[in-house]
């Protein structure tokens, strides 16, 4: 087993942990962290698996850089929305007052 494959498998584990957190945590910031954990896992799988095959490969590295920027943009957007939501309602999770949709 090459070190690259080990990275990919670590990425798989991160995905699993992140998914668990994403599904179960209700606090919005924690859920956002879980999202970022899944993201890191996916990036590790992307690079590790590709480099296991043919050594250092700039293409997945560039893809991951793009992916990181997209993830940062999404995270920043989510933080701005969460902050404003907290300011308006005082809630830190979406489940606080049930499914009232009015």
């Amino acid at each position: 087993m090459s070190p690259d494959l080990l990275y990919a498998l670590a990425g798989v584990v991160l995905c699993g942990i992140g998914l668990f957190g994403f599904l179960l945590l209700e606090h919005l910031l924690r859920r956002l962290l879980a999202f970022n954990l899944i993201g890191s896992g996916v990036f590790l799988v992307l690079i590790g698996l590709a480099q296991h095959r043919n050594g250092p490969d700039p293409v997945p590295q560039a893809l991951v850089l793009t992916g990181i920027v997209v993830a940062i943009a999404a995270t920043a957007l989510a933080v701005v929305l969460i902050r404003r939501y907290y300011h308006l309602t005082g809630h830190t999770s979406l489940a606080d007052d049930g499914e009232a949709q009015s």
Binding site: L5, L9, V13, F20
Partner: peptide, 14 residues
């Protein structure tokens, strides 16, 4: 479910 997902994914990666 998450453990099952992780195992299936690891198998796919290998």
């Amino acid at each position: 479910a998450c453990a099952g997902f992780t195992v299936a994914l690891a198998a796919a990666v290998l």
